[in-house]
Design a protein around this nucleic acid. Sequence first.
DNA 1: CGCTTTTCGCGAAATAATTATAGATTAAAG
DNA 2: CTTTAATCTATAATTATTTCGCGAAAAGCG
Lengths: 219, 219
Amino acid sequence: MQTPKVTNQPTIKRLPSYLHIIESAQREGKEYISGTVIAEELKLEPIQVRKDLALTGIVGKPRIGFPVDELIQAIYSFLEWDKEHRAILIGAGNLGTALMGYREFNKRGMNIVAAFDLDKNKIGNSLHGTPVYSLGQMSEKIEELEVDMALLTVPSGHAQAVADLLVRAGIRAIWNFTNVKLKVPEEVIVQKEDLSSGYAVLSVKMRLTNSQKAQAGAS
Amino acid sequence: MQTPKVTNQPTIKRLPSYLHIIESAQREGKEYISGTVIAEELKLEPIQVRKDLALTGIVGKPRIGFPVDELIQAIYSFLEWDKEHRAILIGAGNLGTALMGYREFNKRGMNIVAAFDLDKNKIGNSLHGTPVYSLGQMSEKIEELEVDMALLTVPSGHAQAVADLLVRAGIRAIWNFTNVKLKVPEEVIVQKEDLSSGYAVLSVKMRLTNSQKAQAGAS
DNA sequence: CGCTTTTCGCGAAATAATTATAGATTAAAG
DNA sequence: CTTTAATCTATAATTATTTCGCGAAAAGCG
């Protein structure tokens, strides 16, 4: 396989967790890490880890594993986390503030350069080092700051209206933390972060576990 | 198929978004909704929506669709969102506070009955109506309040230690919002909410779009 | 009423993702 | 220097998930 398909979503979603482990191996001074070790840490199959890592193009050495530094670099490059992604955040409530304070994003190339809100008490101040502007200044700032993406953390009632503003201001990628399905032109990328879906999975797992226990008790 | 497999994760993750649309149809007074309409709203294939909904056991009528009230009830029941899930939250920072204020959880059967933190200023007060206790009171309160699950929103450095406490206190399900892979006994369910994985997907989408544009420009 | 259209359900086909197998490579032990 | 065990790659097989094709049901309409 010369160029494996790069659109395997499950694989892409696993890469950050691999990165975590590989980086901690790096901190421990290890030069190599094997797929087996990563798999054990994450309770996955070694074969799956190796296949996922193959996507980055790095080849491992039998008996010792993959070169840590190269692997980290390759994952960063695959995700374009080695380049700066300038982001803005709209809605500086609790969730928005939490995201601005999330250090990991910085390491992953995301730079939240400005936040926007309606709250007069927040406007003009800064949160976790990010200046907060009024919504009215958004278009202007998007241009001025050369923004690549927007994190949307407004109350759901305002989500679509703000998304429309963002699109008109030229934003091409929106990370949507609201529970609203946004209607945007097809060339605009929307990544929806859906808390309910995680809760749904958890709920079903709990139900299955409980019914298993009930069965075990009955038999 | 008499009993379709109930462990189709992608399907389960889509159910909440279906629910959203079906409930808004209900608010508009509609008695029936077709898979086609739901699919259009979410930009999915109608066939996929129908197949997913089949999991709930509800049968639709040709030409008009699925009965709204029954469908909602069936999804709730499938996810056990028609029963109360008593939850606690550990780590009343920005993210934790945001989650406590997230009204949708209440509608979905989740009742956050207590929060725990180390911050003296928070302990004794309440946030969004949820009382905040000290971490030391946790085991006691878990028993007293008959808690089913725990939302973990502490700084990653404390995640494993708190998880150990939770397990010892008898918690069987943890919704993990930290970026730490928790080590817990296998009978304990952990649902990890991984922000980085969403960002990874978004990043790759952005890269592909940009390289497409570059190609289009070059040709 | 009979024709047309929409939508459903089922079984089958196609596609995507994971897991298994086989052979090759290399470090370390004997 | 040979053997052993761990790990890799590549290909094949399996399993999971999505999509298709077809016949049937039901509403709307002439």
